[in-house]
Amino acid sequence: MQLFPCPFCGPRDETEFHYGGDAGNARPDGVDVPIERWADYLYLRTNPKGTAREIWVHMNCGEFFVMERDTVTHKVLSSTALGGEHAA
């Protein structure tokens, strides 16, 4: 059981969290976006082995945040509220 630090609620069991994708995967708006660019946004993932920057949501409080962690050792490196106003 991993412990994830919710920037709002503190360390909580992993089962309370839901993975939300790569951090920084900005959405391209508009119907004119080249389809390859749109497909990149929709589907392509960095999926790093090692340090990853990811979006997570703590389902109990409903808040999304950015977490940096190591995908091999599972060590958590940082967690920051989206927008940064509650940065841990």
């Binding site: 059981m1 991993q2 069991d13 992993e14 089962t15 969290f17 839901h18 993975y19 999926n47 082995k49 990853a52 990811e54 995908t71 091999v72 050792t73 599972h74």
Partner: peptide, 13 residues
């Protein structure tokens, strides 16, 4: 498991 991972190990949840 619902957490992206490269760790080839089991867990309890």
């Amino acid at each position: 498991d619902r957490i992206p991972s490269y760790a080839q190990r089991g867990n309890l949840p």
